[in-house]
């Protein structure tokens, strides 16, 4: 499966990451914040086993924005479900801050593809949902939520119901809900893929700004190479099923980044490289 890829100078080809190897990059942090070690997963499909991923390892450092891109069906969502403890890996460990969290729910904030706001809750009460389930004090959370809604220009909607908001606005609310939750790791599963192209690039810029001001450790799933390059510190490229890591790409652009970055030659070169890698993978 491992096709020859352009081994550009800045790219580390890491087909199989050794679990014991401590990563050296990323701010000299000794231990990764989140570490997936040798994750494999298969599903029963009728009488057959569908091997979805094989020996996937990846690391996220504290305050690092990590994207995972890969063909459809390569198990990206499944990966997040395992980090969230909703699914168990067949093999491998999920280590968060030195603790093995296989099957433990609620260790990561989450933002799904559809905003999944509860329609009977007002916006502010949706924003505090993750805090509320964690038992944090309500008035404090509400004050914080209002504060943040004001900050992102949704203050006027604090007491409105979700269906009065556009898709883009709902996704902002869903992101705030994840951001204000008690968990310091955020898992975002293709959060912008249901939006139109214009709203999407608007949302990318929005997320970039908010995240650069409030660094969190993020695992970001996307199909969109440009989006991944604009936002991430590191990009993992998965193969098609059974998925494994075919490339780990550090994204060298300094922060704070601006949208204009996408027009620079360095960006275009890196984008081309990733496109090629994915295309090669799809043509198998």
């Amino acid at each position: 499966m491992s096709d020859p890829i352009h081994p550009a100078a800045s790219i580390l080809v890491e087909p199989e990451v050794d679990a014991s190897s401590t990563p050296l990059q990323a701010n000299g942090n000794p231990r990764p914040f989140l570490e997936l070690r040798g994750i494999s997963k298969s599903f029963a499909q009728g009488k057959q086993q569908l091997q979805v991923m094989e020996n996937i390892s990846l690391t996220v450092h504290e305050g690092e924005f990590v994207s995972v891109i890969g063909p459809s069906g390569s198990g990206k969502s499944t990966l997040l479900q395992m980090i969230g403890g909703v699914m168990l890996p067949d093999q491998g460990d999920i280590i968060l801050q030195n603790q093995r969290i296989n099957g433990l729910q609620g260790k990561a904030g989450y933002m799904p593809q559809q905003p999944a706001l509860l329609p009977w809750r007002t916006i502010e009460k949706n924003v505090i949902l993750a805090r509320e389930t964690a038992g944090m004090p309500r008035q404090e959370s509400l004050a914080l939520a209002r504060n943040w809604l004001d900050k992102v220009g949704l203050g006027g909607f604090a007491r409105a119901y979700p269906r009065t908001l556009s898709g883009g606005m709902q996704q902002r609310v869903a992101f705030l809900r994840a951001l204000l939750g008690p968990q310091s790791l955020l898992c975002l599963d293709e959060p912008f893929s249901a939006l139109d192209a214009f709203t999407r690039s608007e949302m990318q810029a929005w997320l970039l700004r908010i995240w650069e001001e409030n660094r969190r450790s993020v695992v970001f799933i996307t199909h969109h190479i440009e989006e991944a390059l604009l936002l991430s510190d590191t990009i993992y490229v998965l193969s098609s099923r059974p998925a494994h890591v075919i490339q780990k790409v550090p994204v060298p652009f300094p922060r704070p980044r601006r949208e204009e970055l996408v027009d620079t030659p360095e960006f275009i070169a890196l984008r081309r490289q990733l496109t090629e890698a994915l295309r090669a993978e799809l043509n198998g």
Binding site: L80, Q81, G84, G85, V86, Q105, G106, K107, A108, G109, Y110, P112, Q114, A116, L118, W120, L129, A130, E132, T133, A134, G181, Q183, C187
Partner: peptide, 26 residues
């Protein structure tokens, strides 16, 4: 109950009771 909302609640670690009162019942 909506699957996506349910999955969201599980991912953020809501208990069975919280899921019932905050999601399934409404």
């Amino acid at each position: 109950t909506d699957r996506v909302m349910m999955n969201y609640m599980q991912m953020i670690g809501a208990t069975r009771g919280q899921i019932f009162w905050k999601l399934e019942l409404p």
